[in-house]
């Protein structure tokens, strides 16, 4: 019983990180109708920037700020420099360019920093707190929980409660009509990419201290889980990303705890297959048929 509670709690913390990353995929999908396969590579590059800043200043918080800025800047640069020039009549060219970008970025990071895992120190204790004899979340897990929930709340407010959010949603849903109403749609698309890049960088940064350490492939598994979540929840749905992220996090935690780490990826794929069989549009999808 104690073990179950512990696994559920760690699953929740891990799941919220997955949810954040899935949310970043939803944001870019809504802005550009593109599954950004390069999200993990740009996020990892941003975490390298955070690593350098933390190393130079000794402050985790300066590193966090650097990750957000680098993630946003890199994603905006990818959109302006690359994606804007890709034909957008079908989603395939954009996806292929994104996959190419993964190879270039990961190779560049590998050449620059080598294959070894660089340990990143968490700003809070990572040993679980024991409540009533049951080991639960660590202070770092609690920190992740609070940050993730705060970011989700902030994004919900931005998209639903501000005029900038209204323009972001309108531009994504109906670019031509939005332009006719005076909305600067190209700027909104860049902004969507930047926002998505910052959120993905944050998720990767929160994840790395709980893993082996930082290298070019640190966020790969996170991407696979988050991609599954985004497809589960429907690429259009922030709620779906949140619920699906927590579900996948708990599932991975339970399967890893009871059946072993090797079975976890299989469990995620089984879940994905099941949902695609029952609801091909995703659990929270509003549209009947997805275009990509």
């Amino acid at each position: 019983m104690d073990r179950l509670v512990f696994l559920l709690a760690t699953g929740l913390a891990r799941g919220l990180v997955v949810a954040l990353f899935a949310l970043s995929l939803v944001i870019v999908w809504r802005a550009a109708r593109l599954v950004n396969f390069a999200q993990a590579a740009t996020a990892t590059a941003a975490v390298f920037a955070a690593f350098a800043v933390t190393g130079a200043t000794g402050s985790f918080w300066a590193g966090l700020a650097a990750a957000l800025l680098a993630g946003a800047a890199l994603s905006a640069a990818v959109e302006r420099g690359l994606m804007r020039r890709v034909p957008q009549a079908t989603p395939l060219p954009g996806m292929i360019v994104a996959i190419g970008l993964v190879m270039v970025l990961q190779s560049a990071l590998g050449i620059a920093f080598g294959p070894r895992h660089r340990p990143m120190v968490a700003p809070f204790d990572e040993r679980p707190l024991v409540v009533g004899g049951v080991p639960l979340l660590s202070p770092y897990d609690l920190f992740v929980l609070v940050v993730a929930l705060a970011v989700v709340g902030l994004l919900a407010w931005l998209f639903n409660g501000t005029s900038l959010g209204l323009q972001l949603r309108a531009s994504a849903a109906a670019p031509e009509v939005s332009r006719l109403l005076g909305v600067r749609v190209p700027r909104m698309v860049t902004l969507g990419w930047a926002l998505s890049g910052a959120v993905a960088a944050l998720a990767a940064l929160l994840l790395v201290p709980t893993e082996l350490g930082l290298n070019a492939h640190s966020a790969d598994l996170l991407f696979v889980h988050a991609f599954t979540v985004a497809v589960l929840g429907g690429l259009d749905s922030p709620t779906g990303a949140l619920v699906g992220g927590v579900a996948v996090g708990v599932l991975v935690s339970l399967v890893t705890g009871y059946l072993g780490a090797g079975v976890a990826p299989l469990a995620v794929l089984a879940l994905l297959t099941l949902v695609l069989l029952v609801r091909p549009g995703g659990i929270f999808a509003t549209t009947e048929v997805r275009t990509a």
């Binding site: 005029s163 849903a173 109906a174 009509v177 109403l181 909305v183």
Partner: peptide, 17 residues
């Protein structure tokens, strides 16, 4: 020409920006 994913109120606010 209506943004179908937005509510009536949101559509109008968009026009008023």
């Amino acid at each position: 020409s209506v943004v179908t994913e937005l509510t009536v109120d949101e559509n109008l606010h968009l026009g008023a920006l």
